[in-house]
Amino acid sequence: MQKRTLGKTNFEVSEISLGTWQVGGKWGDPFSNKIAEGILHAAIDAGVNFIDTADVYSAGLSEEAVGRVVKSRPERIYVATKCGRQITPHLSEGYTEKALRGYVEDSLRRTGLERLDLIQLHCPPTEVYYRPEIFGLFERLREEGKIQHLGISVEKVEEALKGMQYDNVTTVQVIFNVFRQRPSELLFQEAKQRNVGIIVRVPLASGLLTGKFTTDSTFSKDDHRHFNRDGAGFDKGETFSGVDYDLGLKAMARMKRVFPGETNLAPRALQWILRFPEVSCVIPGASKIQHLNSNLSVPELPPLTQAQVDGMNEIYEEMIKAGVHQLW
């Protein structure tokens, strides 16, 4: 497994790491500790050393599973979690120092870790980035030994640019993939200048970029790919990267012509992301071992040719860009 430096944390992390939003089963399914722990152990066995979770993933069960597995392993595994999404209604006023400190302490308790390697604000309202006292709290938590580093998980490029102005922000987690290319412009340039690590989430556009979905594909009522296409539950950009599903299927039909004979395009989508040296790691999720193995197969593939890269980018420019580029 190739490693890259995670910005000014100086962590050397696996370039393909693991996100755990759906690690205990498909979105909408009950959480399974057996499935979660099986995937986590398999990932670590394969060389993954960075795991991203959040306090709201399966109501804390994801954090608990990550903590159990990490503590059972001899390898140095970096654990990143997130806080803030429990605030209801999810408004800036709910981001109080008392609430955030409580979330950090709850994550420590659930994971059983003495210190969190990386705590990330979990897509807070834009106004939070203009409240320096929030970022000051995390500096105190670092001095107390409860966290090692602070990062931000953002919806919008503008939020990342503002958040990086705080010296103690070491990482930015952002949606970036073939269908969401805007971060590769100013954001990547600024992150490199400030030595801020880039963690890429939703790299497969909620599975759309695998090329396996069709007009007949269905999703359970509790799966965000069913209920959140228009942002009914949270920012619609988290679902299919904000791309209209039917348009996405048409774009993928064209993508398949760029890679004739390949039935699973997930590794190709990850390859496209990893072409950018500013990316520290990508964190695809997995609800099955097969998904994990697919994600980790990237090093076995021949490099993308320039013609393939051009073909992928042309699909974005001609079919996707107008509907998503300036929204996030």
Rank of each mutant, 00 (worst) to 15 (best):
M1N: 03
L6N: 08
G7Q: 09
F11W: 07
V13N: 00
E15Q: 13
S17R: 10
G19T: 01
V23E: 03
V23S: 02
W27K: 13
G28T: 02
P30D: 13
F31A: 02
S32F: 03
I35F: 07
A36C: 12
A36T: 06
G38L: 07
G38Y: 06
G47A: 08
V48I: 06
V48F: 06
V48N: 09
N49M: 02
I51N: 08
A54T: 03
E63T: 08
E63L: 06
V66S: 00
V69S: 05
V70I: 11
R73W: 04
E75P: 09
R76N: 13
R76K: 12
C83H: 14
I87D: 01
T88E: 10
T88R: 06
T88S: 11
H90V: 00
H90G: 00
T96K: 00
T96M: 01
E97R: 10
K98R: 12
A99V: 07
R101Q: 06
G102M: 04
D106L: 07
D106C: 07
L108Y: 03
R109Y: 01
Q120L: 07
P125T: 02
T126F: 13
Y130W: 15
R131Y: 08
E133T: 05
F135Q: 07
L137Y: 05
L137H: 05
R142N: 08
Q148L: 10
L150F: 02
L150M: 01
G151W: 13
I152F: 08
I152H: 08
I152A: 13
V157R: 04
A160F: 00
L161M: 08
K162A: 12
K162R: 15
G163T: 06
D167Q: 06
N168F: 00
N168S: 04
V172C: 06
F176T: 03
V178S: 07
F179L: 01
R182Q: 05
R182L: 10
P183H: 02
F188A: 00
V196Y: 04
L204P: 04
L204K: 02
L209I: 01
T210D: 04
F213P: 06
T215E: 14
T215F: 14
D222G: 09
D222T: 07
D223K: 09
H224Y: 15
F227P: 12
N228Q: 15
D230I: 14
G233C: 09
G233F: 09
D235K: 11
K236Q: 15
G237F: 15
T239F: 12
Y245T: 12
G248A: 11
L249M: 13
K250R: 13
F259M: 04
P260L: 14
G261P: 10
G261C: 13
N264L: 11
R268V: 12
L274Y: 02
P277M: 04
S280A: 10
S280W: 01
S280D: 01
C281E: 03
C281Y: 10
P284E: 04
G285L: 01
I289F: 05
L292S: 01
V298L: 01
P299E: 00
E300N: 08
P302W: 12
L304F: 02
L304V: 08
V309E: 08
E314R: 15
I320F: 12
K321I: 10
K321N: 13
G323W: 11
H325Y: 12
L327Y: 14
W328A: 14
